[in-house]
């Protein structure tokens, strides 16, 4: 988990922002019936929600039911670094990507890193846990 000490409220607010659509990260929802439908992701929270860990063997077995949400992991790390501007999070994502595991095995780790960082944003922005930013 990344340290919150380096995060200022300004940084947390910036990293946690909802971006302009021109700054989107594009993912794809894969579905055996429809092909791939592009999905626009415009915040770190969007990406965290979009990534869904799934069991690969079960996916193949139950494949007709499946939807796989896909974000190219290197593109994600680059987007976090260049567009979101959160270099600490980008470094952590890059470290996961560097292991070169299959995508399905990276997803839980990517999602956890994003969730942890979102919690850190929240801790800085709402230290009292009031639910208000």
């Amino acid at each position: 988990m990344m340290s919150t000490t380096a995060l200022t409220p300004e940084e947390a607010a910036r990293f946690n922002r909802t971006m302009d659509p021109t700054e989107e990260l594009i993912g794809g929802a894969l579905n055996p019936m429809a092909g791939t439908v592009p999905v626009s992701l415009i915040s770190v929270a969007d990406v965290e929600a979009f990534l869904v860990p799934q069991d690969g063997a079960a996916l193949v077995e139950y494949g007709v039911h499946a939807t796989v949400n896909h974000v190219e992991p290197r593109s994600l790390a680059r987007w976090v670094r260049d567009i979101v501007g959160d270099t600490a999070l980008a470094d952590e994502l890059d470290a996961i990507v560097a292991d070169e595991e299959p995508y399905g095995k990276q997803v839980p780790r990517l999602k956890l890193a994003l969730a942890d960082r979102l919690a850190e944003y929240k801790a800085v922005l709402d230290p009292e846990g009031t639910g208000e930013d």
Partner: peptide
């Protein structure tokens, strides 16, 4: 018509993504 689609694309793609 998904005759080929299922076996030439979907199954190998999902297997590749998930290391199956």
């Amino acid at each position: 018509e998904h005759d080929f689609n299922w076996v030439v694309y979907w199954t190998p793609t999902i297997c590749g993504l998930y290391g199956v």
